[in-house]
Amino acid sequence: MSEIEENAVLSEGEGEEEAQEEGHGEEEDKVQVCHLTQETVTQGLSLLCRTGNGLAHAFVKLDLKDKGLTDIAAISNYIHLRFLDVSNNHLTDLAPLASLTQLLWLKIDSNAVACFKGQPLGQLTYLQWLSVAMNQLKDLEGLVGPALESLNLIGNSIQRVNGLQYGHLTNLATLELRGNRLDTTDGIYLPNLRRLYLGQNVIKRLEGLERLERLTTLHLRDNQLETLDGISPNMKCLQYLNVRGNAILSQNALRCLALVSNTLRALVLSENPLAETRDYRLCVLAHLPQLERLDKDPISSEERTEAQERIKELKEEEIPEPEDL
């Protein structure tokens, strides 16, 4: 049998079980046992490519989404896979992925994965893109990805990001944590991170951001921030900040942003009390003269000129009168 046939067809009888739980029909919300079969795999395979050694060909892409699967043990035979989608199933155990050491792209959205401990992701040394959105994760302990560049964890129940360590995720550039239960930004020790999305959490404190020296994008929309204390001058690359829909009122927040004014080019502050105050845009520009967009709208030349006048006035007010010298 050729290597293509070995990769496309399971040995006879392997993975053909398709048992259902006893008591079928007793409870509609009960998950029925559904194993991966030869037929399902054959239908999902695509993208014929050379194998790693260049001596043969194999299918490297497999689509298994929306199959009702509770078990994917049979997948371990497909060692040449590079792209795998098992989203919208009922998976809890990812152990069968351990032999898929050529994986570059893996999507596990909308399953029932509850933790990373004991899972084989650390063995997937070439994995660059991983999405585990809409699962049952509560923490990130055990998460390892030496080549991982993009990680999507949207819509879980994560309360702390303990475990996100530089040594385990050296190359991570994009981290998606929207729609979780975080109340602080602390714990993200990833100095190579470029893009961080933390919207729709319950964040009240900005902590640990001084470690993110290469961050260019920080998204904090729909949280519970009242200040921007925690923005650090160490964030020397920050260009885009979105804090829409928080509870920021005081102009002290603008003084915090002045710490990154040399690089910040786009700011979203709408749906905060501060955005409803008089001369809001002018006040922002007075603190952030290099800004190019505010609340998605470009800064006009007239606004910039008026802001420069305001800056001059503020500086003159700071000069003491002669009798005070």
Rank of each mutant, 00 (worst) to 15 (best):
T170L: 10
H57S: 15
G15V: 07
G68P: 07
I158E: 00
L198V: 11
L215F: 01
G245I: 07
K117E: 15
G118R: 11
S261W: 05
R50S: 14
A275D: 11
L91D: 04
V132I: 15
V86G: 01
K107G: 00
L196Y: 13
G68F: 07
L36W: 02
L94G: 10
L241M: 11
N272R: 08
E6C: 02
E321C: 01
L264S: 06
L127K: 05
A133G: 08
M1D: 11
L220C: 09
V31A: 09
L196I: 12
C49T: 13
T170K: 14
P298V: 07
I79R: 13
L48Q: 12
L257Y: 02
Q308F: 10
L196E: 11
A19H: 10
Q251M: 01
S46H: 12
T170N: 04
Q38M: 02
L212W: 04
I108T: 11
E149S: 09
L140M: 15
D183K: 09
L140P: 02
Q32Y: 07
A307H: 07
E207Y: 00
L193H: 14
N192L: 11
G142N: 08
E18D: 14
L124V: 10
S270V: 08
K30Y: 06
L169P: 06
Q308K: 15
I75A: 11
L48K: 14
L130F: 12
L257D: 03
G54K: 10
L254I: 05
N53L: 10
L177E: 03
L175M: 08
L254P: 03
A275N: 06
F116T: 02
T263Y: 06
R304P: 01
M235R: 07
L164G: 06
Q224T: 03
I158S: 00
S46T: 13
Y126M: 11
L177N: 03
R50L: 14
E141P: 00
E313L: 09
L45E: 06
M235N: 11
L196N: 09
L282Q: 14
Q239A: 12
T263C: 08
G179V: 01
C237K: 12
V33A: 13
A56L: 04
E309A: 12
S2K: 07
N262W: 07
S46M: 08
L285Y: 10
E321N: 04
T217N: 12
A133K: 09
N242Y: 07
P191H: 13
T51R: 04
A56F: 02
L10I: 03
Q128Y: 01
L84K: 04
T101Y: 00
P320V: 08
K107C: 05
C256Y: 00
E309P: 00
E226R: 14
R214C: 06
D229C: 01
L238A: 01
H219W: 15
L175W: 07
S232K: 09
L62S: 02
L267V: 10
K138H: 13
S150P: 00
Q119V: 05
A58H: 09
T42R: 15
L55D: 15
I299K: 03
S300G: 04
V9E: 12
L209G: 08
D66M: 05
E323I: 06
N7W: 09
E303V: 05
S46K: 15
D66C: 07
T70W: 11
L143Y: 03
G52P: 02
L169F: 08
I311G: 02
T263D: 11
E303P: 06
R181H: 13
